[in-house]
Amino acid sequence: MSEHKLSHHEEEADDRALFGFWVYLMTDLLMFAVLFAVYAVLHGNTDGGETGRELFKLPLALTNTLILLTSSFTCGIAMIAARKGDKRQTLLWFGATFLLGLAFLALEIFEFYELIHEGHNLGSNAFLSSFFVLLGTHGLHITFGLLWIAVTLGYILKRGLNRHMVRKLTMLSLFWHFLDIVWIFIFTIVYLGAFV
C-alpha cells in the first residue's frame, strides 16, 4: 500500500489518539504529584535513622539527571527524523535514547542496591518508604518506556517507518519527555531538597 495524503478523517483520528494519550499523561502526573505530597510530609520521619542529607550522593544524582536530560534531547531529535521519514536517523537517535535510558536505570538500581545493602530499605522508616515508592514508580515508568522503545525500534527495523509508526513514536516521545520533567522535580525536591 502506498502512502497517501492524509484524509481529514485520518487526521482527526490521529488528533484524538494523541489527545487521549496526553490526558493519560496528565493523570499520571497527578499520581506522581500525590507521591510527592507524601514524600513532602514524611521525609522528616526517619525514626532516628539517617536523613537524606546523610544518605544521598549529589554527584550521582546530578549524573543521572544529565543522562536523562540528554536522552530527552536525543528523543526530540529522533522525532524530527521520524517525521521526515528518515528511518536510519530515527533508529540511531532512538537507539541513543534507549542506551542513555538504560544507563540511567542501571545507575538508579545501583544506588538502590547500595542503600538496601547498608540496611536502608523500604521498610526502615516513613522517609525511606516514600523515597523508594516515589523513585521506584518513576523507575518503573522508565523501564516500561525502555521496553516500548525496544519493541518499536524492532518493528521499524522489520517493517519500516510509516504514518502509523510516527504516531506511535509521537506518543512514546511525549511519554519520555514527561518522565524527564517528573525527574526534574525528583532531583530538586528529593536530592537537592535533602541538603537545604
Binding site: D15, L18, F19, G85, L161
Partner: peptide, 16 residues
C-alpha cells in the same frame, strides 16, 4: 524509502 509521512497539518500536536 522516503515516504510522505508528515502532512502539512500538524496533527493537533505541536512539533519541533
Amino acid at each position: 524509502s522516503h515516504q510522505h509521512v508528515a502532512p502539512q497539518h500538524n496533527n493537533g500536536s505541536e512539533h519541533g
